[in-house]
Structure formats: C-alpha cells, structure tokens
C-alpha cells in the first residue's frame, strides 16, 4: 500500500489522468459521429507506427503520431465506406504491428509495451506533451462543439452557398488521432481505445442531456483510471489490462441501466 503513495508514481499518475480526461472528452463526440470503430482503427495504426518508427531507427512516438495522422486522413478518404473501411484500417495496423514486432530487435519489448502500456515510465517530458494536448482539445472542442453537433443532428443548414465545412471534421479527426496515438504509447492500444469508447458508451445511456453526457463521460473515465491505477500498483499488475478491466466494469453499468429502463 505504501508503494501507492510513492512520489515516483505521482507524475505517471497525473499523466494518465490528463490523458483519461482528453479521451473521455473526445469520446462522446466520436460516438455521436458513429466512429467508435474508426477510433480502434486509428489506435491500431498508431501502434504499428510506433513499431515502424523503432524499426527504421527513429522515434517510436513520432512514428505513432505520424501513423495516426495518416490513418485520420485515410479515414476521411474512406468516409463513404464507413465501418468496412475502418475494419480494413484496423486489420492492416494489427498485421503490420505484429510483423514488425517479429522482425525487429526491440520489437518484442515494444509490442508488449503496446499491449500493457508504459505509464509508469512516463515523466515530465510526456507531462508537457499531454498537458499541451489537453489544452488544445479543450480549446478546440469549445470552438468546434456546436459545429460538430449541428453536422450530426442538422446537417442541412446552409448559409449562402456554404454547408457545414468538412475542414471541421478533419480537424476533429486529427485531434482524435493525436490523442489516441499519444495514449497508445502511454497506456497501451486497447486501454486507449477503451478510454474513448466505454465512458461515452455508458454516458449515452444514462445522461439526460448533452452537458450531462460530457460530465458522465469525464467522471467515469477519470474514476476508472484512478481506481485501476491504484489496483495495478497494489496487486503488481500490468496497467493497461487493469484499466480495460475497470472500464468493462463501468461498462456493465450500461446493461444495468438498460435492464432497469
């Protein structure tokens, strides 16, 4: 139990908490746009990019960010194919990641890192990156929220000859891609996806309006993160899978609400 309050874990804890907030804030918008599978595809692509970055001797994080950004652009191009396109993106990312892991010196270690997360090894450098991302996400969502929501709910509003612009969609996609890429390198691929998907999934069931949807998502994401951080340390378990397990417990709340509805 003493380990839990070791100052060494303070910076990793804050890093992960800020990331949980970022992803739980992006999640409801991503879900409203019907793009939860795209999130998984982008996250998997980020994982493949991370390994590719290491494979060519560059920075793994830069590789992850570049691959995620590429995936976001590909997603825009594949927009019409919907889930089919996202599923292909997911499979390409998964296949590439495993092949690179099998054929590089550090591949085995990095693929484990992608599965389990590297949260405990993050430090001040990651803190500033994640804080910058958080500020960027909050500012962008504040400015874009209304446009994104109108694009989903009332897409036929026209001013002059202009319909809601696709550039807002692309900006949001890139933001999600950066968030997922950074999260994949810190908490692992599946945990990053789960942080986008599950809090929003539950919030959409229990919330009474949009504001409370965002609040529920933030609350559930942050709470699941905090509990899993403590459990992983106390029971000496890999962080990523514990976070996913905690989020799945949160997700079971959705079924309870459904049964009681």
């Amino acid at each position: 139990m003493d380990t839990l309050f070791d100052p060494l874990f303070l910076t990793p804890f804050i890093n992960g908490l800020l990331l949980a907030v970022v992803l739980a804030l992006l999640g409801p918008y991503s879900r409203l746009r019907g793009e939860w599978l795209a999130s998984l595809g982008v996250t998997q692509a980020a994982g493949a990019g991370l390994l590719l970055g290491a494979f060519i001797g560059g920075s793994a994080t830069v590789g992850a960010l570049a691959a995620a950004a590429f995936a976001a652009v590909a997603k825009t191009l594949l927009g019409r194919s919907g889930n089919d396109g996202y599923a292909v993106m997911l499979l390409v990312g998964w296949s590439t990641a495993l092949l690179l892991a099998a054929n590089t010196a550090r591949g085995e270690d990095l693929s484990h890192a992608l599965l389990e997360g590297q949260l405990y090894f993050t430090g001040t450098q990651q803190f500033w990156s994640i804080l910058t991302l958080l500020v960027l996400v909050v500012l962008t969502i504040t400015v874009l929220s209304r446009r994104l929501l109108l694009g989903c709910l009332l897409p036929d509003r026209v001013v002059g000859d202009r319909r809601p612009s696709a550039r807002y969609d692309l900006l949001f996609d890139v933001l999600v891609a950066i968030g997922l890429a950074l999260a994949a390198t810190v908490v692992g691929v599946m945990a990053a996806f789960a942080l986008v998907f599950i809090p929003a999934w539950v919030a959409f069931r229990v919330a009474g309006n949009w504001r409370s949807t965002l609040m529920w998502s933030l609350l559930l994401g942050s709470a699941a993160y905090t509990v899993s951080f403590a459990l992983a340390i106390i029971f000496d378990q890999p962080y990523g899978p514990v976070l996913v397990a905690a989020l799945l417990v949160v997700g079971s709340g959705r079924a309870i609400v459904r049964a009681g509805a």
């Binding site: 209304r146 929501l149 709910l153 009332l154 959409f204 009474g208 309006n209 949807t213």
Partner: peptide, 13 residues
C-alpha cells in the same frame, strides 16, 4: 442514441 433534450436542440440552432 441521442442524449439531447429538445432544449439542447433549440439551443444548438
């Protein structure tokens, strides 16, 4: 699933 009230929708427009 659309977690919006009518008031949310009217505020949006």
């Amino acid at each position: 699933e659309m977690p919006f009230t009518g008031t949310d929708l009217l505020r949006l427009v």
